[in-house]
Amino acid sequence: MAVASIKEIKQKALEELKAISDLSQLSEYRVKYLGKKGVITLALKALKDLPPEERRILGAELNELKDFLEERLDSLKRELLLAEEDRLTDFDITLPGRRPEIGTLHPLTKTIREICDIFLRLGFEIVSGPEVESDYYNFTALNIPEWHPARDMQATFYLENGALLRTHTSPIQIRTMLQRTPPIRIIAPGKVYRCDADVRHSPMFHQIEGLMVDSDVSFADLKGILTYFAKETFGERTKVRFRPSYFPFTEPSLEMDISCVICDGEGCRVCSNTGWIEILGAGMVHPEVFRAVNYDTEKWQGFAFGLGVERITMLKYGIDDIRLFYDNHLYFLDSFKTL
């Protein structure tokens, strides 16, 4: 073997190296030059027949070429591999993916959770009570005796066994106070029933009752709690308004309006052009109610409130027909698929 032939090898190898454009060429090239029977491998093997001096010089040259090529081939391989992976495939990325089925909570459950969460943050605790109630817990203990005209405000479903379906969540106030001693901070969501059915009334609907009893809980505190609730539920910009009202089991009593969520208080059909929407009733616990549960009216003061879950949900989402909640059509339910 001669120097000239090594030069030839080198020249050819470098030329062919430049021509490599894909991995298979690279692999062929590697076999051709660096494989067991590759040109360079064979040339190196052939060195042993040369005189030592020549062997040393040519050997060095060949090894240098071999190292150079190996290094180049390695880096070229990485480049080609990377380039290969960036090549476009026949995947149509715009096709819909394999999406796992995702369900959703009923919108009323969502509202109940959101509201309960607000009050849980304020240290209230969730309690519940029976839906089939006695006249005593639903009315009498709440200062609504049999002859009271306020019974007209709540058209009652009676059962043939003499019990009734609770018309509000307020009996839970009584049941809780009978079981516990103050301080009390409870929130009680649940189903309630009234004989009414049209676009705005459902014979079954949901309320959330709140009750706080402590030594100094005042009307101003009630306003504070309710204002906090309204802003948390409807947004920081929401304005609130308090109007005197009447409930037999609270005194003083109030109703809270919020600035219309549809028109921002400008006046629209939803708020009957008043700019305000009534969302709940509340008041200071009536002394007769405290008497019914044997609380010392000199020692304890408290407030209670009750709000309609459907009404708040309808306002939040601009729903105009309460029956949608109980039809449970999949399209309707699907619109609430969100965290």
Binding site: G103, T104, Y193, P203, N328, L330, L333
Partner: peptide
């Protein structure tokens, strides 16, 4: 999907 139906 959660549904809520009448108790009656």
């Amino acid at each position: 999907y959660e549904v809520i139906t009448y108790s009656f």
